[in-house]
Amino acid sequence: MKRLMRLFFVVVLTAVLAACTSSEPADLLAKIEEDGVIRVSTDPNYAPQSFLDESGEFVGFDVDVAKEIGKRLGVEVEFVTPDWDLITAGNWGNQWDMSVGSMTVTVARQEILHFAEPAYYYTPAQFAASDASGIESLDQINGQPVCVGLSTTYETWLNGNKAELGFPESSFYAEAPTGVSVVPLQTDNECAQAIQAGRTEFSVFLTSGTVVQAAIDEGIAIHRVGSPVYSENLAVAFDKKSSLDGTSLVARVSEIIAEMHADGTLSTLSNQWFGADLTSDPTK
């Protein structure tokens, strides 16, 4: 028994020492170029942005954008799949280098994450309601329970924390409805599925126009309510708390995004996945 105990302690000590003594280059871009791989987080809960095809391959608009960025950086892309909550919370612990996940740029997120400038595309925030509800206009949403995905801008906006979003005034097309109770579910898609399943806690939800379109395409009995309520800038994000310096990577990826806007790559991909060009800023 004693020998076993001693062995146990040695193993634990070695593990702790190994974890403490590893040394890495200080610049994130340099490390990525040295490894030849950039690790990109993606949340394959959303078609057509990021989802898994029949053979389990990542496909979608975000996935293609990430691959193109990798190509222009001259490195391989490796996808990792942390939950959305973990991505937006920052402090990634160097488990992945970059998020190409349709993340909206907000003031609150900018405190913990770097965003590549400019945004790579723009989506409208859109209310939708079940066909059975009889809700047809934005006024009818006042006082209703409204479903949203957890940690989304929709949740923030409905809770009245517009300042936390920090969008320019021109991004907002409507005032938030009054007297709503917010029902946050794990992802936006759960809202549509709850309605489809016949749950009755809510009949309205707020999400990206692309998610509403995907749900309608899948034959779920919902419809758009009113026109979009605000526009979101979706950008590539990086961890501010990383132990490696990300400044040069953010600058390089920003350049790449600008190039992809200029040479029409993003427009082509957007048309391919959304059937529309969502790459120009609607507020300009």
């Binding site: 394959p44 809960n45 959303y46 078609a47 990021s50 989802f51 898994l52 389990g56 990792v80 799949t81 942390p82 939950d83 973990l86 488990q95 992802t187 898609n189 759960e190 549509a192 599925q193 489809q196 995907a214 749900a215 899948e218 779920i220």
Partner: peptide, 21 residues
């Protein structure tokens, strides 16, 4: 955790993305 592609993770991802949970 999102990083371990065991049975439930796979089911949840393909279910959600296709509205077929």
């Amino acid at each position: 955790t999102g990083f371990v592609w065991e049975i439930l993770w796979r089911a949840q991802k393909v279910g959600r993305a296709n509205f077929r949970s």
